[in-house]
């Protein structure tokens, strides 16, 4: 099982994402933003950071990078894709996930260990979690407030596509406490907090984040 992790100029969390893939038991594969090549991977992680310096809007330039045209095509064909933080912003800008991420209410960059409630354990990236379970992972973002228009929000809620919700207080003013959402087919998931930083108690607040990376192994094996 090969899982690719994309590096853009300005990406910060690709190394941790690669490590999380390795911890899960899969083979990590480095993907480069300027390539049109997914190198035969079975799933893709779009990691966090400040791709292209967040110029224009967070994720806007990265969403049209050469590698992303391949990711968008593969995702439309059912390949699992996980967007974390800046990766979530990129997937929204690329049109793989609805809505947008904008400046935190209160303007402050938020950096803390954040409790999340799992609201959908049926996606490609959450099968090893349980619905209603709470997990603890780091959150570190200045533009993490999820917004969408009313019909989109209603659709997300109605179809059970809110995957993670902030628990114990909303850190950034996100609509309906939304921390992460899924595509219609549950193969593409984006979230603002960082599961790849919570895979080892040496450096993280828990090992809860590893479940996302182990989940996708079963999802790709089953597909």
């Amino acid at each position: 099982m090969k899982i690719g992790v994309i590096t853009f100029p300005g990406t910060l969390d690709d190394v941790d994402a690669l490590r999380a893939v390795r911890y899960s038991g899969a083979d990590p594969v480095e993907l480069w933003h300027a390539d049109h090549d997914l190198r035969g991977v079975d799933a893709v992680v779009v990691p966090g950071g400040f791709s292209y310096g967040d110029y224009l809007r967070a994720g806007a330039i990265a969403s049209i990078a050469p590698i992303m045209t391949e990711v968008v095509a593969a995702a439309r064909g059912g390949m699992p894709v996980l967007g974390i933080c800046n990766g979530f912003q990129i997937l929204c800008e690329a049109g793989l996930l609805p809505g947008a991420l904008v400046r935190n209410a209160g303007l402050h960059f938020v950096c803390r260990d954040q409790r999340l409630r799992v609201d959908n354990a049926a996606t490609a990236w959450t099968g090893d979690l349980a619905e209603g379970q709470e997990i603890l992972v780091p959150l570190k973002s200045g533009e993490g407030r999820f917004v969408a228009d009313a019909p989109t929000l209603e659709r997300l809620e109605g179809e059970g596509r809110v995957v993670f919700r902030y628990a114990g207080g909303n850190p950034n003013g996100a609509l309906s406490d939304i921390a992460g959402i899924a595509s219609e087919n549950g193969r593409v998931v984006g979230l603002m907090p960082h599961p790849e930083h919570a895979i080892d108690t040496l450096t993280g607040p828990s090992v809860d984040g590893l479940a996302l990376f182990t989940s996708v192994l079963k999802a790709t094996a089953a597909a």
Binding site: V102, R103, N104, A105, G106, L107, R145, V147, D149, G173
Partner: peptide, 13 residues
């Protein structure tokens, strides 16, 4: 411009 219904904390600041 941000749409009218989008909260604009930078503008508020």
């Amino acid at each position: 411009m941000p749409k009218p219904e989008i909260l604009d904390p930078q503008g508020q600041a």
